[in-house]
Design a protein around this nucleic acid. Structure first.
Lengths: 87, 87, 87, 87
DNA sequence: CACTGGAAAATGCCGC
DNA sequence: GCGGCATTTTCCAGTG
């Protein structure tokens, strides 16, 4: 409740808020641009006769493989710690 | 905008809405109860000397394995269809 | 050494671990079933012309309580005003 | 038969597929990096006393536009009133 | 053009 | 109380 008195329109907090929001919006644009690039790649692949559904499945499976490996490493780590050994 | 005139407090739509919300809330209680049961199992395991973090990792890995198998089946399916073969 | 450190898969601890994992997985299936029921209710509501997004909002608000809801709104309002926007 | 049907891993199509998947994965890493930057900004904001949940709400509202925002509020309001609640 | 499913975002939760 | 993880919710593209 400390702040409910209001962030004055021109106060320092207000300026900070504005800066934060703008930085986020800038980064989100950037992210969207990359997402669009990805779409373009899929579209191009499709134009070359690839089935995008399959393609996406391949990418997904590969990512899952990575995740699983990471998970297994994490587990190994846990066991090692449980045995009092460091990595 | 068709409905913006209002769902009368006692109208049919109002009664339906009430019913829907209550059904959802009932099911969510049920779900929460099950979630609490799961917590209890973890707590009991912990009391018996198991490390819950490890335990959770094990459960997660097992689930990922299932998912991965399902994904791979789905891909196989896609390929078979691509070859004009049915499952 | 692996044998000494690990929980042999025939040991008492191993049996207990197996039991724990199975109980958890059983309960998680149950939870998922209830979650699916909830989805069904939302789907039915949608078929009857309700806006599920707002329906979810209603359920969330009811669960949250007016108290917290009001607090959150106050902060949101504060931020928006600081940026020269209206609620 | 597998050879006939599949994309041999030395074929032109295979090379193209490899290139496509690699491009996608590269872009997805890039996207993730930007997403992490965004997280950092929220974390910094939090460290400065801002409520990240409402901050996210602000960003969402700005992206959405007053038009849609008003429409959603109208429906929510309608539902809440039908249940005898206030916004 | 609504529906389905899949990717992404957001919220909540648990352990430290 | 915070960071990370898991779940939930929302969004969006493809498809009939």
């Amino acid at each position: 409740m400390a702040q409910t008195a209001g962030i004055g329109h021109n106060s320092a907090a207000g300026a900070q808020l504005k800066s934060i929001v703008e930085r986020i919006e800038r980064l989100e644009e950037e992210k969207k641009a990359t997402a669009d690039d990805i779409k373009d790649v899929y579209a191009e692949a499709k134009a070359n006769g690839f089935d995008t559904k399959q393609l996406r499945a391949v990418v997904r499976i590969r990512k899952m493989g990575q995740q699983k490996r990471a998970e297994e490493l994490a587990i190994l780590d846990l066991y090692l710690h449980a045995l009092g050994m460091e990595l």
